[in-house]
């Protein structure tokens, strides 16, 4: 990357405290596609001049997939260790690149001693737009293109965040088309509840293929989302349907970066 990524350890060594901690998450750290989105979120933070840092090698899984799978021990072990690190750096505000990290830190860490102001990156983008710090200019034009938004379950139903990602699309002057199952009625991509890490149970079809029917019905050329697991499932779904030529899957952060030519 052009800019260097500030870590909490460096900041603390220099006696500085960033305005916000960027919680990257496991997918954002290791999955190749999600890594790109992570860099895009950093580009946005850099572009608006927000002081931020990441934990880097001090970050560890929030424990979300362990908790959803029923392994509360492992979840709380992860949570306590993470909370110790976060509290150690006196973290107040966190932006996450993943709805699962967002949900876990926001809702489940307070009961274990970790209370922070947690937002998802689409909420950060929305507030930057509202403050006038982020526009859609200087980059690729999305004008006239049909975009549909796939609501990640842990952003939407789990936390009632429906408008922020849409606000990031609305300033593009595109045609935002909703799927038949959207917002609180949105259909899961199939990855939640630790399904990402196991083979699906026997059934008639894959959940992401079912979701593709909704996407195709809209005639959208871009599926936007805000979750690395949805990203994987939707991208696979597009492949299964052999629609790679017609439909792109993009994170809200990627779209924002492109629209601003960052």
């Amino acid at each position: 990357m052009e800019q260097t990524i500030p870590t909490m350890a460096q900041m603390a060594a220099e006696g500085k405290e960033p305005e916000i901690l960027f919680w990257v998450g496991c997918a954002g750290s290791f999955d190749e596609r999600a890594q790109k989105i992570t860099r895009d979120i950093c580009k946005i933070l850099h572009h608006v001049g927000m002081s931020y840092a990441v934990l880097g090698t001090e970050e560890s899984c929030t424990g979300d997939p362990a908790k959803r799978a029923g392994n509360e021990f492992l979840f709380q072990m992860q949570a306590m260790v993470n909370i110790e690190v976060l509290n150690g750096y006196n973290i107040k505000k966190i932006v996450t690149g993943c709805p699962h990290c967002f949900n876990t830190i926001r809702n489940e860490y307070p009961g274990l001693g970790g209370t922070y102001d947690v937002i998802h990156h689409t909420q950060l983008i929305q507030s930057l737009i509202d403050e006038g710090k982020l526009k859609a200019e200087g980059g690729e034009s999305f004008k006239g293109r049909k975009i549909t938004f796939h609501d990640p379950c842990y952003l939407g139903r789990a936390n009632n965040v429906y408008e922020a990602p849409r606000a990031a699309l609305e300033i593009l002057d595109t045609e935002l088309v909703e799927m038949k199952r959207c917002k609180s009625n949105g259909l899961c991509c199939g990855a939640g509840g630790a399904q990402m890490f196991k083979e699906p149970e026997p059934g008639k079809k894959e959940i992401n293929d079912e979701r593709m029917l909704d996407v195709i019905q809209t005639g959208a050329s871009i599926i936007a989302s805000g979750c690395p697991f949805c990203m994987t499932m939707l991208t696979d779904g597009v492949k299964h349907m052999e629609k790679e030529q017609e439909i792109m899957v993009m994170d809200i952060a990627e779209i924002t970066v492109r629209a601003n030519g960052l």
Binding site: M1, T4, I5, T7, V24, C26, G28, S29, F30, Q35, T38, R39, C42, V54, G56, T57, E59, S60, C61, G63, P65, A66, A69, N71, L74, M77, Q78, A194, M196, F197, K198
Partner: peptide, 24 residues
């Protein structure tokens, strides 16, 4: 397997925690 990875290297996959910032 996923639990094991999380216990050993703090991620659901078999990637080392030391490589967590490689994306940068």
């Amino acid at each position: 397997n996923m639990f094991g990875n999380m216990e050993n290297n703090g991620a659901p996959w078999k990637y080392s925690q030391a490589d967590r910032l490689n994306w940068a």
